[in-house]
């Protein structure tokens, strides 16, 4: 299989944080959602991928090439970060002129179409934009230079549901071409629950799981039961649980559950929450 993105044992050491052996691969034509709580290492991973920070170990392949050796691959990689990175003094028109001399395959017509679609005025200075507009401008730039791989870091957070839906629309349009792939990090799992083919879940710098979203969602479920009932289950069936005055809710692995328990569908949020904050049965670590 051809991969749009491959990480093998990516490492980055900080004083109080280590990105620890992150390995994942995103097949061409697919969308991978990168989830985890704030500070879990999502931005660090993306920054290391594009070369904004240096890595302390491991390998990175974007569209089959190593961006630390050859920057030319970045012609085909579109990047949107959570904070805007364009000069506030400039307007979209000036930005377009500059971009045409930075990216070889810059498409001014495409850029114009995106701005029209986003209803962003040519002459308006970037410092007068709302957060949603800044994100849309970043997306427009990322999509107007012939990118095949789109990397988004928290691009939808802090935006209202309507703008978020617009952005999902744009991503769906982008992947209508099966050569195109998307890697997006978010702590808003509702967006990823719709669009992502794959989910990678990072916690405290470590990748806890990577896999097809449908498999992940169908292999976990929520069980409401009593404390005693919970104790009867095998420890490795329960990924995490929370107690309340009236009983216990547990995230369980469906395929390990004995037949007649009523197990509800779990959302990505549930999986995230119970794995990170839920108590564990017996003395198991992580999963």
């Amino acid at each position: 299989m051809e991969y749009a993105l491959e990480l093998r044992g990516l490492r980055k050491n900080y004083h109080h944080f280590t990105l620890d052996n992150v390995s994942l691969s995103l097949p061409k034509g697919c969308i991978m959602g990168f989830i985890g709580e704030n500070g879990a290492g999502k931005s660090t991973t993306i920054k290391a991928m594009v070369g904004l920070i240096s890595k302390d170990g491991g390998e990175i392949r974007l569209l089959g090439q190593d961006p630390t050796l050859d920057r030319s691959v970045m012609e085909q990689v579109g990047l949107v970060l959570d904070s805007g990175f364009f000069p506030p003094e400039m307007n979209a028109k000036q930005l377009g002129v500059s971009m045409a001399r930075i990216y070889q395959r810059w498409d001014p017509e495409e850029f114009r179409r995106f701005l029209e679609r986003f209803q962003i005025a040519w002459e308006k200075k970037i410092k007068e934009y709302s957060r949603g507009m800044v994100m849309k401008l970043s997306l427009a730039v990322a999509l107007s230079h012939g990118a095949k791989l789109l990397l988004l870091d928290e691009a939808t957070s802090g935006l209202d549901p309507i703008v978020r839906d617009d952005i999902l629309d744009i991503l769906y349009d982008f992947i209508q071409d099966e050569e195109h792939s998307v890697f997006l990090s978010s702590h808003i799992t509702a967006d990823l629950e719709k669009i992502a083919d794959y989910i990678a879940f990072i916690h405290r710098g470590k990748l806890l799981m990577v896999g097809e979203k449908d498999d992940l969602l169908s292999s976990y479920g929520l069980l409401h039961c009593t404390r005693d009932q919970l104790e009867e289950l095998a420890p490795d069936t329960v990924a995490g649980y929370r107690t309340s005055e009236f009983g216990v809710t547990a995230l369980v692995k469906r395929y390990r559950m004995p037949g007649d328990y009523p197990v509800e569908n779990a959302s990505l949020d549930d999986i995230l929450l119970y794995c990170v904050k839920g108590k564990k049965l017996a003395s198991q670590e992580g999963f």
Partner: peptide
Amino acid sequence: NYDKTCGWNKFVCASPIS
């Protein structure tokens, strides 16, 4: 200094330009 404060470095260092 301007590039440092407005975040432009984040863009340009992730672009094809070395």
